[in-house]
Write a protein that binds this DNA or RNA. Structure first.
Lengths: 367, 367
DNA sequence: CTGAAAGCGCTAACAA
DNA sequence: TTGTTAGCGCTTTCAG
């Protein structure tokens, strides 16, 4: 602080509640009351105060307010990457629901780095966010999960809460809510869709192998295969990354290899877009030569030609639910503490478009 | 506050700096010093303090810190819609640059409502954000601009700053920085590209007519036309909205009308995607029957078939620059006040892909 | 290298 | 209906 230091010309100081009080000839308590509209204030007084505020260009200090005991009225959200539509749509749900309850949204991009993720949780805790929503699949690393569990407890102990969104709950003992979607079921359904069309050699492409998202999708894929009596071939599983360039590169390599398959289940729509490009460049037609499906149902699925058959996830709704779970009932009694540990599960469903055709023959290899 | 109220079981209280101080047997000043690492502290003392912090699960309170005089270390950003890639990429730049300087990002979605926009500026001012970045085109409404100007001054007076990103500066006297891009130039270039291919009847489609973004793009469009001696035909200008459904609907109507044109300049890539769908459904081939260009160069341009020729904007870089302009030099002398009024202008360039072909004949109308 | 103490701007009990 | 006042948790002089 520069208190007591001599001040050079042009030094600015924001008007405080005291300046307003003095100017209006009232006490700070009264100013506070007109600010919060939570206690009766005489009409004439209110007007004088409002005039004073306007004249002084007074803007209430949210930090002082938060410190004085009311909540900060913010919610935090941690995503991997804000330009990725999967996260963007969830973020939109979070932002909308936050705004609806008069809250601001602190957005952090962890760029798929678990350490950064944890660091952001801490930062949001420092900010005393009413809730922190952690979005996207998680790795099953013990140490990481332990760290996260500790933070969930800390947050909870402080009257805030951690909400997992699109990843498995931390278990019943951990005070963290979770919004899940039927990831395995969606993967099952779309794999079955492929099987129904006669495809048996289905390549699974993309997604970090250690991510819960990938594990669940693979589980659904395998269950569908087994249910139809098709033995899963490990050689057909090519996990790696999410992202267009991964899909493009790996698909290209695979097309140049001797691996045989008639359909591709891309880990998400973006990977599918990359794969489609590789197929196109290899002179393969979708779905005539090869069928392709994705996951997430983000806008690109509609733009691709052929339009992509994929699995729809209620992304925005997940974001909304996440903040609902994370926030103590606003209207309810103040003393009420949210369940903290509730788990919401939303459904998924496949969206059939134009990228799948019945298998007519083995894929013809080109070299 | 519930101070002095009798407390029921399970009441939680977060550890404060005083708890830590007591536990470590030091003063709060010392704890603060190990927290901020800005003053020498004996190794042994530091260790005791750190142990205490860990044992108590201490998490510093950002509000108290902000109130005590240090900056809140946040930057605010106001976009129309976070799932729109135009905004998402700018937001990413803002977030990255903010994170780089150890700041958190408060994201607000104004949903194209100027009133909401102003309200968010106020909210961010209350939060004492180090800078508030206002993204996207603006309407030329006097009252609105006046409001904004007042807020720019207020923000500036309080040591923060308003940065306009992707919209025209408020003028030299207003203390607000701006990051612009060569919007008119990009529109000029791509229109000229079309003209060069022999197109003269070029439909301009989409974008709110009163938005600066639209005005600039139209200006470039008209300038290109005039330079080539083609008289602009007002009947060819069909502004409206950004958004796929607008592009789809209006394009459909126009194709069913008697309006003649051989090329379409969509106000942005999303509108282009909608228009393309309408053309496709009308049995028109791009670019053989009709040429199409967009603006922004967001990922969908690469996904469309044919891939869309469009204008590239350095979106992420704009976001980065915006926070650089808005933040006082971090390393520089503390007393330094940023120019506040600087205007950055970034270049744009066209990206030629596959959606434009030379005009070979008048468009054949189908009914 | 460390401690005491004065705020930062606001809210809310309590008293009037 | 209004004023007085005691903090909220932290940083930073100033004095050892």
């Amino acid at each position: 602080m520069r208190r007591g230091t001599q001040v050079t010309a042009g030094e600015q100081r924001r008007a405080t509640i005291r300046d307003v009080a003095r100017q209006a000839g009232v006490s700070t308590a009264t100013v506070s009351r007109v600010l919060n509209q939570n206690y009766p204030v005489a009409e004439s007084t209110r007007e004088r105060v409002e005039t004073a505020m306007r004249e002084l260009g007074y803007v209430v200090n949210a930090h002082a307010r938060a410190l004085a005991g009311v909540s900060a009225r913010t919610v935090g959200i941690i995503v991997n990457e804000i330009v990725d539509p999967f996260f963007a749509f969830i973020a939109r749900g979070v932002e909308r629901e936050a705004a609806r309850t008069g809250r601001l949204c602190l957005v952090c991009c962890a760029q798929s780095d678990p350490r950064r993720e944890l660091a952001f949780v801490d930062l949001l805790h420092e900010q005393r966010a009413d809730a922190v929503v952690l979005v996207g699949g998680s790795v099953a690393d013990r140490a990481y999960l332990g760290q996260l569990t500790r933070r969930a407890a800390d947050l909870h102990a402080g009257g805030s809460s951690l909400v997992l969104c699109g990843r498995p709950s931390l278990g019943g003992k951990v005070p963290a809510a979770a919004v899940e979607y039927d990831n395995e079921g969606g993967a099952f359904a779309i794999t079955d869709h492929l099987l129904t069309q006669g495809h048996e050699r289905i390549l699974y492409l993309g997604g970090p192998p250690d991510l819960s998202t990938t594990r669940d999708r693979l589980a659904g894929y395998r269950r569908a295969l087994e249910l139809r009596g098709v033995r899963p071939d490990p050689a057909l599983v090519h996990t790696g990354l999410f992202g267009k360039s991964f899909g493009y590169r790996r698909m290209g390599e695979l097309l140049r290899s001797r691996l045989e398959f008639t359909a591709v289940f891309a880990a998400n729509d973006i990977v599918a877009a990359g794969a489609a490009q590789a197929m196109e460049e290899a002179g393969l037609r979708i779905p005539d030569d090869i069928s392709l499906v994705g996951y997430d149902d983000v806008p690109v699925a509609e733009e691709m030609r052929p339009r992509l058959t994929t699995v729809h996830i209620p992304l925005e709704e997940m974001g909304r639910q996440a903040v609902r779970l994370g926030l103590p009932g606003d209207d309810a009694d103040d003393e009420w503490r949210a369940p903290a540990t509730g788990v919401q599960r939303l459904g998924t469903h496949i969206v059939v478009r134009d990228s799948v055709a019945p298998r007519v023959r083995r894929r013809t290899r080109r070299t």
